[in-house]
Design a binder for these strands. Structure first.
Lengths: 258, 258
DNA sequence: CGGGAGTTTGACCTGGTTCAACAGGTGTGG
DNA sequence: CCACACCTGTTGAACCAGGTCAAACTCCCG
């Protein structure tokens, strides 16, 4: 097991273990579309290994131009960009089944960074075989586009939030959004109903200061919509949050898993 | 020539004329990657016709679940979302060479609307043949993903702006961004150096009120960075704008044109 | 000449920022 | 064992960027 230090001192561990794609615990869940045996075989050969990262580890950095392509197998991560003076904006969160770093192989360079939010396991793919994927399995190529479109849709929604919602609406939307996504891949449940997120991160997602984020989240608590437990958020009233945000739940459609 | 009334009374015209893809005036420019003859042939057969829309016409509407797929041939358009109470957020602008409505064929439903900003000509594609495209020309499938990644990248940048830039920085960034994109496809030039945009639209893009948008643009004028001519904006100092926004120009890499 | 779309300005108000201080938890080294 | 640093969350007070309201001005077009 080789070890690589990266970024802020948190460790990334190469992992000798490897879950075969055929036995992928994610794929079995009803949220993902079933794959043809030949597709599964390709994906399995496309995967070169796994990467295990501790919470807080940097996975990819802005400007990197030879980064790998990953899929989240378990855990939480987030994408962000920063301005020169350090102002940071979280762009989106990454959960199991999400493709990480697609911009690298596709456009040649990454313009955002990725950091692990919780302990994280990633499937590592051979970036130079992405063209093979499109050539030999058009359905999988289409799936990659599907995932890219889905990301675009989330960004659109987030943009609407930042541009046109008030702080309270934004916070409600963000938490409901994360809850919904986490629920769909079993990252929150009866046993562990908590979203592992700090108020600083919420602030950098909503485009607010930490102080005002704190006061806003407090309002959501007081109204009984959420419970905050230092370092994690528990949703008590999903529909209340959605109503406050002026949003409607997404239907949970089956998605591809690469 | 059939005529369809849509949305706000502005007209959309079906257009008997058709520029063959082999003679596409856009494709000749150095901004697009050269296509193989077989790719070009496919794209040509993929295109069913052209759509001509007047400035102000609605092209696609949120919630539509059987919308067509287009590419902008000439003119300007924009994508937007609205909240129930009418608050509107512009998500991005569409210029020649941009794919319009990809989310429709890929994900089954569109979650944003599109409106023509200037008079507009669109190439219309057969949405149900998108799978054929991936199957018969993997390179084109990859190109679709490339374009989706590019859109994602623009949205990331826009999110950073809304979340973390001040009004003045945001405005500078937006105008420099539009100028840069327009320049790359010949939509601004010595002869017609103007970006056809209203202050209301700028406001809805930046997440600001019209009043404050006006005061902010005024500051940019006073500093000699732009000139505003009712309904259009002319850039006088691109690098000044970029500096004010704390951004660096994108390199203008060759892109695919579908 | 009337009306609408787009822009401009001033006065006032408020949502959100900044600064500052503090509390609790956790990890680290002496 | 304590002392200390550090991270996360909390709260209050002063301040300001940007919002709201109101009104007018300039084109353009019918």
């Amino acid at each position: 097991m080789n070890e690589v230090s990266l970024g802020n001192g948190r460790r990334i561990l190469g992992n000798g273990q490897r879950i075969p794609c055929e036995e992928c615990p994610l794929r079995i869940t009803p949220h993902f579309r079933p794959f043809e045996p030949s597709e599964l075989e390709f994906v399995s050969s496309f995967k070169t290994g796994e990467l295990v990262a501790e919470a807080g580890a940097g996975i990819l950095s802005e400007g990197t131009n030879n980064a790998a392509l990953y899929t989240v197998l378990s855990g939480w991560a987030f994408r962000y960009k920063t301005l020169e003076d350090g102002r940071r904006q979280v762009l989106n969160y990454l959960l199991p089944g999400d493709l990480v770093g697609l911009q690298g192989p596709v456009m040649g360079e990454l313009d955002h960074s990725v950091e692990a939010l919780s302990n994280l396991v990633l499937c590592v793919f051979q970036r130079n075989r992405l063209h093979d994927l499109f050539a030999s399995h058009p359905g999988l190529g289409f799936d990659v586009t599907w995932l890219a479109s889905r990301e675009e849709r989330m960004l659109d929604a987030h943009l609407l939030s930042l541009g046109r919602r008030t702080a309270l609406e934004r916070a409600a939307y963000l938490i409901a959004f994360l809850y919904q996504r986490a629920l769909a891949v079993g990252m929150v449940s009866k046993k562990s109903p908590r979203i592992p997120i700090t108020q600083l991160l919420v602030a950098d997602t909503l485009g607010l200061s930490i102080v005002h984020t704190n006061k806003t989240l407090r309002k959501l608590s007081v109204r009984g919509l959420i419970v905050w437990h230092g370092g994690a958020c528990e949703v008590s009233d999903f529909h209340g949050l959605m109503k406050m945000a002026g949003a409607t739940p997404d239907e949970d459609r089956k998605r591809p898993l690469i």
